[in-house]
Every structure is written in C-alpha cells, then in structure tokens.
C-alpha cells in the first residue's frame, strides 16, 4: 500500500482524481462542485510536499494561493453580483500574485534578465485568470475543459522542463478538472463552475507554468502558448449537443493548444 501511495502516478493523478470526483459529486447540488479542483490539488500537495509553509518559497506561495483562490471564488460566487469590472480586478490579482511570488527571485538577476520571464509570468497569469473568469466560468463544461487542458499542459511542460513536482501538481489540477467534467458527462447536464472552480484552476496552472519557466527550464513562449488554452475552450460548439460531446470537443480544442505548449517545451531542451 505504502509503495503504491509513493507512486507519482497515484500522487498526482489517481488519488487527486478520486478526491475530486467525490467532492464534485457530493457538492455539485450546492453549487460547490468547483471545489473539486482544490480537493485534487490538496491531495497532491499532501502526498508530494506536505503542508509545510516555512520557509515561504515560491512553490509554497503557489500552494497557499491555490487554497485561497477557491475561497475567494466562493465569496465572489455567492456574495457579489457579477460586474464587468470583476474580471479586470481578478486579472490584476493574478498579475499581483505572480509578482509577489517571482519578484524576490528575479530581482537579483537585474532588469535585463528578469524582464522577459517576469513579464511573461505576470501577463500570462493576468490573462489566464481574467479571460477564464469572464468567458468560461459561467459554463461548467467550458470551465472544466479549460482546467483539464491547462492542468495537463502546465504539468506536461513542467515535466519536460525538468520539474516533476510542478508536473504532478499540474496533472492534479487536470485530474480535478477531469473529475468535474466527468460528473457532468455522467449526469448529462452542466453544473455550476463559477469563480470557485475557475479561479483555482486558472491561478494554479498559470502560476505553476510560470514557476516551471523561472525555476526550471520551460521556455517563456511555451508559457505564452499555454495561456491560449482558455481561448481554445471558448471556441463555439453546438449548444444543443449532448454535454459529453461538448466536453469532448472543448477538451480536444484545449489539448491541441496545450500540446503545442508541451512541444515547445520539449523542443527548447535541444
């Protein structure tokens, strides 16, 4: 048993998927099925690094934000009326989060060397969070497909960029999003995603990809490519098509872009 739980495929895939499936199935009736992503991520953190936050490294800041994002999402979903400034404010929060995490690492390198990775991290986080919230969060299938492809893309690129830890965290987000999608495919109707789901998935994947760029060897243009996944998940599909078909098509769109990001990460290794 212990040997099985030490297997990276279990830690970053199977165990997070089971946790997310349970949460999505149990909490969907209360419009909280989106907590599936954080359930998956927390399961992976438990197995891989544990809940230690001292010293507060970049990875631990990402973990903290990953836990805070769905809580903020619940507040946004249940306590506020939607406004058109909401997405802009969240995009700004995404940029601020990236700056908070990576500035202490990039600052000593000097402006010339810090500008490209730092700028990519800030813009990718702002775009991924802002666009996903404004265009995907209200549609459970689109949100799930985006989370699935973002997680798989961030995870795959991180593994190719020499960090299996970030790879497993990305895969855990993909597993959580996959479970969220699967519930919708099984019951044949869309469930509420909202900021509860989308903030966690977008924040985590954008920051994990940026961390894999700054702390490992994922190239900046792979991170930029990955940021286009939400755009792919917003492409039109027949709204009258069965949920499983919409989920399949939108996931394929997302995987296509995520695949490009992974190919760029592979190619950068020479």
């Amino acid at each position: 048993m212990q040997e099985m739980l030490a297997n990276p495929a279990v830690q970053g895939g199977l165990a997070p998927f089971i946790a997310a499936l349970t949460v999505a199935a149990l909490l969907a009736p209360f419009r909280l099925g989106g907590l599936a992503v954080v359930a998956a991520f927390a399961t992976a953190v438990y197995f891989i690094a544990g809940f230690t936050f001292e010293p507060l490294t970049a990875t631990r800041k990402i973990i903290l934000l990953g836990f805070a994002a769905p809580l903020a999402g619940i507040v946004i979903d249940f306590a506020f009326r939607p406004t058109r400034f909401e997405a802009w404010a969240l995009a700004l929060a995404g940029a601020a989060a990236a700056a908070w995490i990576f500035w202490p690492i990039l600052a000593p390198k000097g402006l010339e060397r810090a500008l490209l990775p730092g700028g990519t991290a800030v813009l990718a986080a702002a775009w991924t969070v802002g666009f996903s919230h404004s265009r995907l969060a209200e549609d459970g299938v689109r949100a799930g497909a985006a989370g699935l492809a973002l997680g798989a893309g961030a995870g795959g690129a991180a593994i190719l960029g020499a960090s299996l830890t970030y790879g497993l965290y990305g895969m855990a987000v993909a597993a959580g999003s996959g479970a969220f999608l699967l519930v919708q495919m099984i019951i044949g109707r869309k469930i509420h995603a909202g900021a509860t789901f989308m903030l966690a998935a977008a924040f985590l994947t954008a920051l994990l990809a940026a961390a894999a760029m700054i702390l490992a060897q994922v190239p900046w243009y792979a991170v930029a490519a990955l940021a286009l996944v939400p755009l792919a998940a917003s492409l039109p599909v027949n709204a009258g098509a069965p949920v499983w078909l919409q989920a399949l098509l939108l996931s394929l769109f997302g995987f296509f872009v995520a695949g490009i990001a992974c190919a760029l990460a592979w190619h950068a290794g020479g």
Binding site: T57, I105, S163, L164, T165, Y166, A211, A216, Q217
Partner: peptide, 23 residues
C-alpha cells in the same frame, strides 16, 4: 547531456524537485 530524455540528471537536480538553484 539529456540525450533522448527531456532533461539531463544534472538539470533535474538543479530544478525545484531538488536543489532549486534559481531560488
């Protein structure tokens, strides 16, 4: 030398999985 692998062992050891040399 990474050869046919995604990255070499030394590159992996420098990553956040181990020595996290950038941070």
């Amino acid at each position: 030398d990474k050869g046919s692998r995604p990255r070499s062992r030394d590159e992996h050891l420098r990553s956040p999985d181990f020595f996290n040399v950038a941070e």
